[in-house]
């Protein structure tokens, strides 16, 4: 055991400032180049709504939008998001007014433990915009990158349908 902060023979990269626009606000975060967007959000920016389920790109819990497209934050380096617009679950509601998809998840009980939920919602909103929510088969297929271990799947489909139909059937 030893304290090595002052040592000269350091190994590991230095921090670099990364400028990202997050939920409409410019933020600068000082992180090592190896830090993922997910860890930058959760550990450095206090935005813990985006979840870490696997850190391996297999579960979808970390889904955020970069320039309006859904991406896995655990497979994206924070530095690679520099100069881009990132939207997280915290940026979805309009003040106290929930986004229709958030309301639909609540009303359809589309979650239990809630850990997959931010990722599911970020995916679900895009699904409709992408035109991939026209049928139940499409919804299940295109939502299959987001694992829900509590298996709220039928209710997640119901929530997506509800928003799609309220929006007048985006397809």
């Amino acid at each position: 055991m030893s304290t090595t902060e002052s040592r000269q023979d350091i190994r590991g990269p230095h921090c670099v400032p990364v400028t990202v626009e997050i939920n409409g606000r410019g933020r600068v975060v000082d992180v090592e180049p190896r830090v993922s967007l997910l860890d930058a959000l959760r550990e450095h920016l206090g935005l813990t709504g985006t979840k870490k389920g696997c850190d391996q790109g297999t579960c979808g819990a970390c889904t955020v939008w970069v320039d309006g497209r859904r991406v896995l934050a655990c497979l994206t380096l924070a530095a690679a998001a520099a100069g881009h617009e990132v939207t997280t679950i915290e940026g979805l509601a309009d003040g106290d007014e929930l986004h229709p998809m958030q309301r639909a998840f609540l009303e359809n009980d589309a979650f239990q433990c809630g850990y997959c939920t931010p990722g599911q919602i970020m995916s679900a909103v895009k699904l409709i915009e992408e035109g991939n929510a026209t049928t139940d088969e499409d919804i299940s297929e295109f939502m299959s990158g987001n694992i829900c271990r509590c298996a709220a799947y039928p209710n997640i489909r119901a929530a997506v349908r509800q928003v799609r139909d309220a929006a007048g059937g985006a397809a």
């Binding site: 915290e90 929930l98 958030q102 609540l106 931010p118």
Partner: peptide
């Protein structure tokens, strides 16, 4: 509907590592 639902759908619900 769940009393903790709003916190869970907005990302405000805090899990231990957070």
């Amino acid at each position: 509907t769940r009393v903790d639902g709003p916190a869970k759908v907005t990302g405000a619900a805090l899990y231990s590592a957070e």
